[in-house]
């Protein structure tokens, strides 16, 4: 098999997951699935960045409590978010005594972290426990990438709503019923989309690239999976991906395909235009909804393709197009 997709030789299992969702997310269609719903997204702190940091830390602490592990029992934490220099994640890690590697893949960070962690655990002979976690916050993303919150602007029909929340996953070799079976790391793909509001359009080619490589390497058809779920392409992005895949003779319409950004909000009533985005989007939907379905046994095989638009404020002002990346992780119930 080519190195593009890595099939894990040993049993790498999801030990547990945790989710913390913001106020808007916990009014959405998935409200009853989250571990904890926040009523206030500032948490009484002095800034939204600190609030995101607190949310991130709480998600990891919730996961530790759930599994009865101490921070000392965890060998590594791979985590990230959207803020400049990973403000939220780095500050969350100050109080957790866990070895830590910061990771930035925009909204694809969750998949990248899981894929890395799974690879590390697969390669080690010792009992290892790695936590993968991501967070995002509407108000920190908005001020970083867009406009001040109180500025009166209209959201374009292609805009997406950054999800407020954090998700964490414990990966180990001993406990759990869901196995990480193979991972495909993404390549950076840029087909010339320049509209910073159209992130779904920028990311769809990256998702296609990773998916097709995954299917070719594993000699599978999309039908092999009970559910294929992309990170945050949004409504139009998902349509574009279907079209791109169809042109390359992979028909996603014949499979159970959906997108985390579409699932997390109700487009009719929540005024989110294309749906959710942000690293926490895929983390919340996978941890709260897909993982639960896998445990229940209503689905057996899932391909999670987290997608990220690698956009920066500077590149945007310099009129550059938007590079994108997608990482695929295949999960299996055992």
């Amino acid at each position: 098999m080519p190195a593009s997709t890595i099939q894990l030789k040993s049993r790498v299992l999801i030990g547990a997951v945790a989710t913390l969702a913001g106020p808007k997310e916990s009014q959405g269609p998935l409200k009853k699935h989250f571990n904890k719903a926040l009523r206030d997204d500032l948490l009484g702190l002095t800034s939204y960045e600190l609030a995101e940091s607190k949310i991130h830390e709480s998600a990891i602490r919730y996961l530790l409590n759930k599994t009865n592990y101490m921070p000392q029992d965890i060998d590594l934490c791979i985590a990230g978010d959207l803020t400049d220099e990973l403000y939220a994640t780095n500050f969350a890690m100050r109080t957790l005594e866990i070895p830590f590697v910061g990771s930035f893949g925009a909204c694809a960070t969750y998949g990248a972290a899981i894929a890395l962690a799974a690879r590390i655990i697969d390669a080690s002979v010792f009992k290892q426990r790695i936590i993968c976690s991501v967070s995002s916050h509407f108000s920190t993303a908005e001020r970083q990438f867009r406009f001040p919150l109180e500025l009166g602007t209209q959201r374009t029909p292609l805009a997406q709503w950054t999800v407020t929340g954090a998700g964490a996953m414990l990966i180990n070799k001993t406990e759990g019923r869901i196995r990480i079976e193979s991972v495909t790391f993404g390549r950076v793909v840029d087909w010339g989309v320049k509209d910073a509001n159209n992130m779904g359009g920028a990311m769809a080619p990256a998702a296609m690239n990773t998916m097709i490589r995954h299917f070719k390497d594993t000699r599978r058809q999309p039908r092999y999976y009970d559910l294929i779920i992309t990170g945050d392409l949004g409504h139009t992005g998902a349509l574009l991906l279907k079209q791109l895949m169809y042109e390359r003779s992979y028909d996603l319409d014949q499979t159970n395909y959906t997108d985390c950004g579409v699932l997390i909000f109700d487009r009719e009533t929540q005024k989110v235009e294309q749906g959710g985005s942000g690293p926490a989007c895929s983390a919340l939907v996978f941890n709260a909804y897909v993982y639960k379905k896998l445990l229940e046994g209503s689905i057996g095989r899932v391909l999670l393709v987290t997608t990220g638009a690698l956009i920066s404020k500077t590149s945007c002002l310099q009129k550059q197009s938007i590079p994108a990346i997608a990482h695929a992780v295949s999960f299996e119930r055992i």
Partner: peptide, 26 residues
């Protein structure tokens, strides 16, 4: 098939986006 398709300005794809994108409510 996928080689050389990473970084390019794909006019056909940009056109497809224009077709599929939701219309502004003028």
């Amino acid at each position: 098939m996928l080689a050389g398709m990473m970084y390019m300005e794909d006019q056909r794809y940009l056109e497809l986006i224009k077709q599929r994108a939701p219309k502004t409510r003028h």
